[in-house]
Design a protein around this nucleic acid. Structure first.
Length: 411
DNA sequence: GAGTTTGAAACT
DNA sequence: CAGTTTCAAACTC
Protein backbone atom coordinates (compact mmCIF):
# COMPACT_ATOMS: atom_id res chain seq x y z
CA UNK A 1 0.00 0.00 0.00
CA UNK A 2 1.33 3.36 -0.83
CA UNK A 3 1.42 5.99 1.75
CA UNK A 4 2.06 9.64 2.18
CA UNK A 5 4.26 11.09 -0.43
CA UNK A 6 3.63 8.27 -2.77
CA UNK A 7 2.80 9.19 -6.24
CA UNK A 8 -0.23 9.84 -8.21
CA UNK A 9 -1.66 7.24 -10.47
CA UNK A 10 -3.73 9.02 -12.99
CA UNK A 11 -4.88 8.41 -16.50
CA UNK A 12 -3.57 5.12 -17.70
CA UNK A 13 -2.02 4.38 -20.99
CA UNK A 14 -1.69 0.70 -20.69
CA UNK A 15 0.78 -1.04 -22.90
CA UNK A 16 0.22 -4.41 -24.36
CA UNK A 17 3.10 -5.73 -22.38
CA UNK A 18 2.86 -6.29 -18.73
CA UNK A 19 5.41 -5.86 -16.08
CA UNK A 20 6.28 -9.29 -14.96
CA UNK A 21 8.70 -9.58 -12.14
CA UNK A 22 8.25 -13.23 -11.52
CA UNK A 23 11.20 -15.49 -11.83
CA UNK A 24 9.74 -17.31 -14.75
CA UNK A 25 9.78 -14.22 -16.85
CA UNK A 26 12.81 -12.50 -15.60
CA UNK A 27 14.56 -12.84 -18.87
CA UNK A 28 11.74 -11.06 -20.54
CA UNK A 29 12.54 -7.99 -18.62
CA UNK A 30 16.19 -8.16 -19.15
CA UNK A 31 18.69 -6.25 -21.19
CA UNK A 32 18.41 -6.33 -24.93
CA UNK A 33 15.16 -8.11 -25.32
CA UNK A 34 13.31 -5.64 -23.20
CA UNK A 35 15.15 -2.73 -24.52
CA UNK A 36 13.78 -3.70 -27.83
CA UNK A 37 10.36 -4.42 -26.48
CA UNK A 38 10.01 -1.27 -24.53
CA UNK A 39 11.47 0.88 -27.17
CA UNK A 40 8.73 -0.09 -29.47
CA UNK A 41 10.45 -2.60 -31.62
CA UNK A 42 9.05 -3.66 -34.92
CA UNK A 43 7.93 -6.83 -33.31
CA UNK A 44 6.17 -5.24 -30.47
CA UNK A 45 4.62 -2.41 -32.31
CA UNK A 46 4.52 -4.01 -35.67
CA UNK A 47 6.44 -1.17 -37.17
CA UNK A 48 9.14 -1.82 -39.66
CA UNK A 49 12.23 0.29 -39.27
CA UNK A 50 12.63 2.89 -41.87
CA UNK A 51 15.82 2.23 -43.81
CA UNK A 52 16.19 5.95 -44.18
CA UNK A 53 16.16 6.27 -40.45
CA UNK A 54 13.56 7.53 -38.05
CA UNK A 55 10.83 9.38 -39.76
CA UNK A 56 9.83 11.58 -36.94
CA UNK A 57 12.83 13.06 -35.38
CA UNK A 58 16.43 12.27 -34.77
CA UNK A 59 17.58 15.57 -33.53
CA UNK A 60 18.48 18.78 -35.16
CA UNK A 61 19.42 18.26 -38.74
CA UNK A 62 22.31 20.41 -39.64
CA UNK A 63 20.73 21.45 -42.87
CA UNK A 64 17.50 22.64 -41.41
CA UNK A 65 17.22 26.31 -40.87
CA UNK A 66 14.46 27.53 -38.69
CA UNK A 67 14.88 31.23 -38.41
CA UNK A 68 12.80 32.73 -35.75
CA UNK A 69 11.82 29.37 -34.41
CA UNK A 70 14.98 27.76 -33.22
CA UNK A 71 17.49 30.56 -33.15
CA UNK A 72 20.28 28.07 -32.92
CA UNK A 73 20.38 24.35 -32.55
CA UNK A 74 20.50 24.37 -28.82
CA UNK A 75 18.28 27.20 -27.92
CA UNK A 76 14.95 26.76 -29.53
CA UNK A 77 11.69 28.48 -29.05
CA UNK A 78 8.47 26.64 -29.54
CA UNK A 79 6.27 29.00 -31.37
CA UNK A 80 2.68 29.17 -30.28
CA UNK A 81 1.38 29.35 -33.78
CA UNK A 82 3.03 26.10 -34.65
CA UNK A 83 1.57 24.30 -31.74
CA UNK A 84 -1.86 24.47 -33.19
CA UNK A 85 -0.93 23.15 -36.55
CA UNK A 86 -0.55 19.50 -35.77
CA UNK A 87 -3.37 17.26 -34.81
CA UNK A 88 -1.84 14.17 -33.32
CA UNK A 89 -5.07 12.28 -33.42
CA UNK A 90 -4.99 12.45 -37.15
CA UNK A 91 -1.47 11.26 -37.47
CA UNK A 92 -1.39 7.75 -38.87
CA UNK A 93 0.55 5.25 -36.91
CA UNK A 94 0.44 1.84 -35.35
CA UNK A 95 -1.48 3.18 -32.46
CA UNK A 96 -2.58 6.66 -31.89
CA UNK A 97 -2.35 6.14 -28.20
CA UNK A 98 1.14 4.81 -28.29
CA UNK A 99 2.29 7.52 -30.57
CA UNK A 100 2.22 10.07 -27.85
CA UNK A 101 2.29 7.64 -25.04
CA UNK A 102 3.65 9.74 -22.33
CA UNK A 103 4.10 13.30 -21.57
CA UNK A 104 2.99 14.76 -18.35
CA UNK A 105 2.19 18.19 -17.29
CA UNK A 106 4.47 19.08 -14.49
CA UNK A 107 2.61 20.06 -11.45
CA UNK A 108 4.81 20.96 -8.62
CA UNK A 109 8.39 20.57 -9.51
CA UNK A 110 11.01 20.04 -12.13
CA UNK A 111 10.81 16.35 -12.56
CA UNK A 112 11.86 14.70 -15.73
CA UNK A 113 9.39 14.02 -18.46
CA UNK A 114 9.61 10.87 -20.47
CA UNK A 115 8.27 11.29 -23.90
CA UNK A 116 7.94 8.37 -26.23
CA UNK A 117 7.24 8.66 -29.87
CA UNK A 118 6.58 6.18 -32.57
CA UNK A 119 8.06 6.65 -35.99
CA UNK A 120 4.98 7.40 -37.97
CA UNK A 121 4.27 8.48 -41.45
CA UNK A 122 4.46 12.15 -41.13
CA UNK A 123 4.75 14.14 -44.27
CA UNK A 124 8.31 14.94 -45.13
CA UNK A 125 10.26 16.82 -44.32
CA UNK A 126 9.74 16.15 -40.68
CA UNK A 127 11.90 18.07 -38.35
CA UNK A 128 12.40 18.60 -34.74
CA UNK A 129 9.82 21.27 -34.91
CA UNK A 130 7.22 18.58 -35.11
CA UNK A 131 8.36 17.34 -31.77
CA UNK A 132 7.90 20.75 -30.37
CA UNK A 133 4.54 20.90 -31.97
CA UNK A 134 3.61 17.51 -30.69
CA UNK A 135 4.63 18.43 -27.23
CA UNK A 136 2.76 21.66 -27.32
CA UNK A 137 -0.28 20.08 -28.80
CA UNK A 138 -0.26 17.30 -26.30
CA UNK A 139 -0.05 19.86 -23.64
CA UNK A 140 -3.16 21.46 -25.00
CA UNK A 141 -4.83 18.11 -25.04
CA UNK A 142 -4.13 17.24 -21.52
CA UNK A 143 -6.08 19.97 -19.87
CA UNK A 144 -5.67 23.14 -18.05
CA UNK A 145 -2.31 22.42 -16.57
CA UNK A 146 -1.15 21.11 -19.83
CA UNK A 147 -2.07 24.21 -21.70
CA UNK A 148 0.22 26.05 -19.41
CA UNK A 149 3.50 24.98 -20.90
CA UNK A 150 5.51 24.95 -17.75
CA UNK A 151 8.29 22.99 -19.26
CA UNK A 152 10.66 23.53 -16.45
CA UNK A 153 11.94 19.99 -16.44
CA UNK A 154 14.11 17.90 -18.64
CA UNK A 155 12.37 15.83 -21.26
CA UNK A 156 13.71 12.53 -22.38
CA UNK A 157 12.37 11.81 -25.78
CA UNK A 158 12.56 8.40 -27.30
CA UNK A 159 11.84 7.93 -30.95
CA UNK A 160 10.54 4.42 -31.13
CA UNK A 161 12.24 2.18 -33.54
CA UNK A 162 14.79 4.74 -34.45
CA UNK A 163 17.41 3.61 -32.02
CA UNK A 164 17.84 7.21 -31.08
CA UNK A 165 16.71 9.19 -28.18
CA UNK A 166 17.12 12.72 -27.07
CA UNK A 167 17.16 14.66 -23.89
CA UNK A 168 15.40 17.94 -24.02
CA UNK A 169 16.08 20.31 -21.23
CA UNK A 170 13.58 23.02 -21.50
CA UNK A 171 14.10 26.01 -19.36
CA UNK A 172 12.84 29.45 -18.82
CA UNK A 173 9.27 28.68 -19.65
CA UNK A 174 6.95 31.52 -20.11
CA UNK A 175 3.24 31.57 -19.99
CA UNK A 176 0.69 34.00 -21.14
CA UNK A 177 -2.38 32.27 -22.41
CA UNK A 178 -3.25 28.82 -23.59
CA UNK A 179 -2.68 29.90 -27.15
CA UNK A 180 0.30 32.04 -26.61
CA UNK A 181 3.11 30.23 -25.03
CA UNK A 182 6.72 29.61 -25.56
CA UNK A 183 9.56 27.67 -24.13
CA UNK A 184 13.24 27.66 -24.73
CA UNK A 185 14.56 24.23 -25.39
CA UNK A 186 17.97 22.77 -25.17
CA UNK A 187 17.87 19.61 -27.16
CA UNK A 188 20.51 17.05 -27.68
CA UNK A 189 20.40 13.64 -29.19
CA UNK A 190 21.71 10.98 -26.90
CA UNK A 191 21.87 8.09 -29.27
CA UNK A 192 21.33 4.55 -28.16
CA UNK A 193 18.64 3.11 -25.92
CA UNK A 194 21.14 2.40 -23.22
CA UNK A 195 22.12 6.01 -23.29
CA UNK A 196 18.48 6.84 -23.09
CA UNK A 197 18.08 4.73 -20.02
CA UNK A 198 21.06 6.27 -18.39
CA UNK A 199 19.93 9.76 -19.18
CA UNK A 200 16.39 8.98 -18.24
CA UNK A 201 17.40 7.63 -14.93
CA UNK A 202 19.78 10.44 -14.21
CA UNK A 203 17.09 12.93 -14.91
CA UNK A 204 14.56 10.86 -13.07
CA UNK A 205 16.77 10.55 -10.05
CA UNK A 206 17.93 14.10 -10.01
CA UNK A 207 14.48 15.44 -10.37
CA UNK A 208 12.92 13.24 -7.77
CA UNK A 209 14.86 15.01 -5.11
CA UNK A 210 13.10 17.55 -2.99
CA UNK A 211 13.60 20.86 -4.64
CA UNK A 212 11.30 23.39 -3.24
CA UNK A 213 8.40 23.78 -0.90
CA UNK A 214 6.10 22.68 -3.64
CA UNK A 215 8.06 19.62 -4.49
CA UNK A 216 7.46 16.07 -3.51
CA UNK A 217 8.35 14.79 -0.17
CA UNK A 218 10.26 11.86 -1.46
CA UNK A 219 13.89 11.98 -2.32
CA UNK A 220 16.29 9.58 -3.84
CA UNK A 221 18.68 7.10 -2.47
CA UNK A 222 20.67 10.07 -1.38
CA UNK A 223 17.79 11.59 0.45
CA UNK A 224 18.58 13.32 3.64
CA UNK A 225 15.44 12.44 5.51
CA UNK A 226 15.08 9.00 7.00
CA UNK A 227 12.75 6.75 5.14
CA UNK A 228 10.80 3.74 6.17
CA UNK A 229 12.28 0.56 4.82
CA UNK A 230 10.13 -1.56 2.62
CA UNK A 231 9.51 -5.23 3.16
CA UNK A 232 8.76 -6.36 -0.32
CA UNK A 233 9.22 -10.00 -0.99
CA UNK A 234 7.59 -10.73 -4.30
CA UNK A 235 7.58 -7.54 -6.31
CA UNK A 236 11.34 -7.25 -6.45
CA UNK A 237 10.68 -3.68 -5.48
CA UNK A 238 9.98 -2.86 -9.08
CA UNK A 239 6.26 -2.41 -8.80
CA UNK A 240 4.33 0.41 -7.31
CA UNK A 241 3.50 -1.82 -4.41
CA UNK A 242 6.96 -0.95 -3.21
CA UNK A 243 7.00 2.37 -1.47
CA UNK A 244 10.62 2.96 -2.28
CA UNK A 245 10.11 2.38 -5.95
CA UNK A 246 6.90 4.35 -6.04
CA UNK A 247 8.71 7.22 -4.40
CA UNK A 248 11.48 7.09 -6.94
CA UNK A 249 13.91 5.90 -4.35
CA UNK A 250 16.34 3.07 -4.56
CA UNK A 251 16.04 0.63 -1.74
CA UNK A 252 18.52 1.21 0.98
CA UNK A 253 18.60 -0.48 4.34
CA UNK A 254 15.29 -2.09 3.55
CA UNK A 255 14.04 -5.46 4.60
CA UNK A 256 13.11 -6.46 1.12
CA UNK A 257 14.18 -9.65 -0.53
CA UNK A 258 15.30 -10.23 -4.07
CA UNK A 259 15.40 -6.50 -4.56
CA UNK A 260 16.00 -5.06 -7.98
CA UNK A 261 15.43 -1.48 -7.00
CA UNK A 262 19.07 -0.68 -6.67
CA UNK A 263 22.07 0.39 -8.67
CA UNK A 264 23.05 -3.18 -9.33
CA UNK A 265 19.96 -3.68 -11.44
CA UNK A 266 19.91 -0.36 -13.20
CA UNK A 267 18.68 -1.62 -16.51
CA UNK A 268 15.82 -3.57 -15.07
CA UNK A 269 14.95 -0.70 -12.84
CA UNK A 270 14.94 1.70 -15.73
CA UNK A 271 12.78 -0.67 -17.66
CA UNK A 272 10.26 -0.73 -14.88
CA UNK A 273 10.35 3.02 -14.47
CA UNK A 274 9.90 3.55 -18.12
CA UNK A 275 7.11 1.03 -18.31
CA UNK A 276 5.19 2.69 -15.56
CA UNK A 277 5.75 6.11 -17.02
CA UNK A 278 4.54 4.75 -20.30
CA UNK A 279 1.41 3.48 -18.68
CA UNK A 280 0.91 6.57 -16.70
CA UNK A 281 3.04 9.68 -16.95
CA UNK A 282 1.97 10.60 -13.46
CA UNK A 283 2.87 7.23 -12.01
CA UNK A 284 5.61 8.70 -9.89
CA UNK A 285 3.93 11.87 -8.92
CA UNK A 286 2.76 12.53 -5.41
CA UNK A 287 -0.74 11.42 -4.67
CA UNK A 288 -1.04 14.19 -2.20
CA UNK A 289 -1.29 17.54 -3.89
CA UNK A 290 0.17 20.48 -2.07
CA UNK A 291 0.49 20.07 1.62
CA UNK A 292 4.16 20.81 1.93
CA UNK A 293 3.76 24.21 3.31
CA UNK A 294 3.12 24.86 6.94
CA UNK A 295 -0.13 23.74 8.43
CA UNK A 296 -1.86 23.11 5.17
CA UNK A 297 -1.90 19.43 4.44
CA UNK A 298 -3.13 19.26 0.90
CA UNK A 299 -5.44 16.66 -0.51
CA UNK A 300 -5.40 13.28 -2.09
CA UNK A 301 -5.69 13.75 -5.82
CA UNK A 302 -6.99 10.34 -6.66
CA UNK A 303 -8.82 9.77 -3.45
CA UNK A 304 -9.04 6.65 -1.39
CA UNK A 305 -11.37 3.70 -1.82
CA UNK A 306 -11.69 2.47 1.70
CA UNK A 307 -14.53 0.12 2.45
CA UNK A 308 -14.11 -1.00 5.99
CA UNK A 309 -11.70 1.20 7.79
CA UNK A 310 -14.01 4.20 7.67
CA UNK A 311 -10.88 6.06 6.73
CA UNK A 312 -9.87 6.16 10.34
CA UNK A 313 -6.92 3.85 10.14
CA UNK A 314 -3.65 4.05 8.40
CA UNK A 315 -4.89 1.71 5.74
CA UNK A 316 -6.49 4.83 4.36
CA UNK A 317 -4.07 6.92 2.38
CA UNK A 318 -5.90 10.09 3.23
CA UNK A 319 -5.92 9.33 6.92
CA UNK A 320 -2.31 8.36 6.98
CA UNK A 321 -1.39 11.53 5.15
CA UNK A 322 -3.32 13.34 7.83
CA UNK A 323 -5.66 14.85 5.31
CA UNK A 324 -9.39 14.78 4.92
CA UNK A 325 -11.24 12.75 2.38
CA UNK A 326 -12.92 14.63 -0.42
CA UNK A 327 -15.39 13.78 -3.13
CA UNK A 328 -12.46 12.40 -5.07
CA UNK A 329 -12.58 9.52 -2.67
CA UNK A 330 -14.69 6.48 -3.29
CA UNK A 331 -14.71 5.46 0.30
CA UNK A 332 -17.73 4.08 2.07
CA UNK A 333 -18.73 5.05 5.55
CA UNK A 334 -16.07 7.69 5.72
CA UNK A 335 -15.39 9.38 9.03
CA UNK A 336 -12.43 11.29 7.82
CA UNK A 337 -14.15 14.24 6.29
CA UNK A 338 -13.79 17.95 6.64
CA UNK A 339 -16.55 19.05 8.92
CA UNK A 340 -16.37 22.50 7.41
CA UNK A 341 -17.32 21.00 4.10
CA UNK A 342 -20.59 19.55 3.06
CA UNK A 343 -20.88 15.91 3.86
CA UNK A 344 -23.74 13.54 3.89
CA UNK A 345 -24.66 13.41 7.58
CA UNK A 346 -26.24 10.02 7.25
CA UNK A 347 -23.94 8.09 5.03
CA UNK A 348 -20.81 9.96 5.97
CA UNK A 349 -19.61 9.12 2.57
CA UNK A 350 -17.47 11.14 0.28
CA UNK A 351 -19.22 9.92 -2.80
CA UNK A 352 -21.21 12.05 -5.14
CA UNK A 353 -20.42 15.31 -3.53
CA UNK A 354 -20.42 18.57 -5.30
CA UNK A 355 -17.66 21.09 -5.60
CA UNK A 356 -18.30 22.36 -2.12
CA UNK A 357 -16.81 19.24 -0.69
CA UNK A 358 -14.10 19.07 -3.29
CA UNK A 359 -12.78 22.51 -2.66
CA UNK A 360 -12.11 22.21 0.98
CA UNK A 361 -10.84 24.98 3.12
CA UNK A 362 -7.57 23.12 3.27
CA UNK A 363 -7.33 23.33 -0.47
CA UNK A 364 -8.08 27.02 -0.50
CA UNK A 365 -5.50 27.67 2.15
CA UNK A 366 -3.06 25.50 0.32
CA UNK A 367 -3.56 27.34 -2.94
CA UNK A 368 -3.09 30.65 -1.19
CA UNK A 369 0.10 29.43 0.36
CA UNK A 370 1.38 28.30 -2.97
CA UNK A 371 0.66 31.63 -4.54
CA UNK A 372 2.32 33.50 -1.73
CA UNK A 373 5.28 31.19 -1.91
CA UNK A 374 5.57 31.81 -5.59
CA UNK A 375 5.41 35.54 -5.09
CA UNK A 376 8.08 35.32 -2.44
CA UNK A 377 10.20 33.23 -4.70
CA UNK A 378 9.91 35.82 -7.44
CA UNK A 379 10.89 38.48 -4.98
CA UNK A 380 13.90 36.53 -3.82
CA UNK A 381 14.99 36.01 -7.36
CA UNK A 382 14.63 39.66 -8.14
CA UNK A 383 12.10 39.05 -10.86
CA UNK A 384 10.36 41.92 -12.51
CA UNK A 385 6.78 42.62 -11.46
CA UNK A 386 5.53 41.24 -14.72
CA UNK A 387 7.50 38.06 -14.36
CA UNK A 388 6.44 37.74 -10.74
CA UNK A 389 2.85 38.10 -11.75
CA UNK A 390 3.36 35.52 -14.43
CA UNK A 391 4.88 33.08 -11.97
CA UNK A 392 1.97 33.48 -9.62
CA UNK A 393 -0.50 33.02 -12.42
CA UNK A 394 1.24 29.90 -13.60
CA UNK A 395 1.11 28.53 -10.11
CA UNK A 396 -2.54 29.41 -9.87
CA UNK A 397 -3.13 27.56 -13.08
CA UNK A 398 -1.41 24.52 -11.65
CA UNK A 399 -3.55 24.65 -8.55
CA UNK A 400 -6.71 25.02 -10.53
CA UNK A 401 -5.78 22.09 -12.66
CA UNK A 402 -5.40 19.85 -9.70
CA UNK A 403 -8.67 20.98 -8.26
CA UNK A 404 -10.46 20.50 -11.54
CA UNK A 405 -8.98 17.06 -11.89
CA UNK A 406 -10.18 16.24 -8.41
CA UNK A 407 -13.63 17.46 -9.20
CA UNK A 408 -14.11 15.68 -12.46
CA UNK A 409 -11.96 12.65 -12.02
CA UNK A 410 -14.90 10.33 -11.46
CA UNK A 411 -17.54 12.28 -13.20
C1' DG B 1 6.71 -12.76 15.42
C1' DA B 2 2.87 -15.04 13.18
C1' DG B 3 -1.41 -14.49 11.37
C1' DT B 4 -5.15 -11.45 9.83
C1' DT B 5 -7.08 -7.42 7.77
C1' DT B 6 -7.04 -3.87 4.61
C1' DG B 7 -6.91 -1.32 0.39
C1' DA B 8 -3.89 0.00 -3.58
C1' DA B 9 -1.95 -1.95 -7.57
C1' DA B 10 -2.15 -5.22 -11.02
C1' DC B 11 -4.55 -8.13 -13.78
C1' DT B 12 -8.54 -10.33 -16.40
C1' DC C 1 -14.91 -0.63 -16.54
C1' DA C 2 -16.09 -3.91 -13.12
C1' DG C 3 -14.60 -7.87 -10.81
C1' DT C 4 -10.74 -10.57 -9.15
C1' DT C 5 -6.11 -11.42 -7.69
C1' DT C 6 -1.76 -9.98 -5.89
C1' DC C 7 0.84 -7.50 -2.92
C1' DA C 8 2.71 -5.23 1.09
C1' DA C 9 1.58 -2.32 4.98
C1' DA C 10 -1.17 -1.97 9.03
C1' DC C 11 -3.02 -4.15 12.53
C1' DT C 12 -4.16 -7.80 16.13
C1' DC C 13 -3.05 -11.26 19.12
Amino acid sequence: MNKTGVFLAGRMNRPTTKLNTTESSQEDVDTDSTSTKHFGSEKHHNVQPDPAGPRLWTGFPSDVSLPGIFPHPHQGIIQPTLMDTVNLSSVPGPSSSSYHSSISAPWLNNECLFYNMMPVDLPAPVTNIHVAQAMGHQQVWEGLSEVTPHFTQPVVCNVYGSGQVAAIDICEPTFTTSHNCSAHADVSVLGTPSQYYQAACRLYESNMQPQDPLGRAAGTVCESEPRKPCHCSRSKCLQLYCECFANGVMCSNCDCSNCYNNAEHEVRRYEAIKLYLGRNPDAFRPKIAGGESGKVKGWHIKGCSCQRSRCLKNYCECFEANIKCTSSCKCVGCRNYDERSEMDPIEKTCKDKGPASVITTAMVEDVCNHLVAQAEKAEREGQSPIQAERMVLVEFGHCLTQIVKSMFKDK
